[in-house]
Write a protein that binds this DNA or RNA. Structure first.
Lengths: 195, 195
DNA sequence: CTTGGTTTTGAACATCCGTTCAGTTAGCCA
DNA sequence: TGGCTAACTGAACGGATGTTCAAAACCAAG
């Protein structure tokens, strides 16, 4: 028997990406086999190759999609640096808390990309950092922020914000909007904005 | 030919651990084979099993050693919360910058531990967090620190500090002591200590 | 120089890996 | 209703995986 009843390209493709994302996040790219992904979708391993040229592309596609979604969803620059920073912080928290698997993969599986693919993802990641750095630099110039080192502060703020995904679970002690409040308070103080 | 001239148990054991640490950090636990580790040491794969019962134990030993070193090296509590926090920050930066491979493994390979081993490592990690949380809580009680949420601030500070290992390279723009100064300034403001 | 014990080799084990492809089936269009 | 093609199966490919173990080689002590 071949081709299970009712299944189509439009269905199977997304299901493969979803299964890969979940498995890569939980077990790691190298520890997940194509047969495992196929089983999760309810298909034989060979069928995966109608949707991806190889395993590496599956990983790369997930990462590139995530990073492009992230950059596209960035709030438009508007207002003074303080307001823009607050918008950035709230956005970052909401976006990352919403897709823990994709975030996990984007940070943990960089070393499993081929050098060419790594270069591209790294470039997208740098664009995101640059976005925050521009806000901080502008705020520093107009005297709204006080920091010893803008570059280090940029990386420190991103690390602080992204760290939220390692412990936050929906339905816990804090709701997402409370989380945003707490982190905005932390970042505000970190960049030297007084109340 | 068996047994290369001049080699001994006291030599091979540490070299296996060193090779495993370097390879696990660069490529990830699942992507590294026992034959690869053996080749790095200059030995056949079978010889590794004189020093470790299996691959999993090799990973677990590296992680447990790292975490116990970390806890043992923690500065003794002395003085007021502000002084203790500063000591903690400077210690954390110095310790982590010194052993990037071990730090990388400790954060990235948790999911490749068996459940029992994970439980133990997780416990050690929590002890480290509790150490910082105690400092912050004490400082909050005596009014030296001002934070919206002590628990979240603890995790945020650790994430911020540990993030340094993702970009810092010895011999770059900043020396370690400058790095400590910058991060102490960041943390100080984050917990609400005015200058 | 021989003996004894430690350390390592090299081959073998069963099983898994990513990937390919000829053949089979399911659903759509005429 | 019959034919066409997209979708999928199932088997096969060469090679890699963690682990075991008898045999070999080495070093040190007597």
């Amino acid at each position: 028997m071949a081709r299970t009843a009712g299944s189509h390209s439009d269905i199977t493709g997304p299901r493969i990406r979803a299964a890969a994302q979940q498995l890569f996040a939980r077990q790691g790219y190298a520890a997940v086999s194509m047969r495992q992904i196929a089983a999760e979708v309810g298909v034989q391993a060979g069928a995966l190759y109608n949707y991806t040229p190889d395993k590496q592309s599956l990983l790369y596609d997930l990462m590139v999609t995530h990073m492009e979604d992230l950059l596209r969803a960035l709030p438009e620059p508007a207002g003074r640096p303080v307001a823009r920073l607050e918008a950035f912080v709230r956005f970052h928290i909401a976006f990352h808390v919403e897709r823990p698997d994709a975030v996990f993969i984007a940070y943990m599986e960089l070393r499993n990309l081929t050098p060419e693919n790594f270069e591209i993802i790294e470039g997208l990641r740098r664009r995101y950092e640059d976005h925050l750095e521009a806000i901080l630099r502008e705020g520093a110039e107009e005297g709204a922020f006080k920091m010893a080192d803008t570059k280090v502060t940029t990386l420190a703020v991103i690390a602080m914000l992204t760290g939220v995904t390692t412990w936050f679970r929906e339905g816990g002690r804090l709701a997402v909007n409370e989380l945003q409040d707490v982190y905005w308070d932390l970042v505000r103080k970190t960049v030297g904005v007084s109340v």
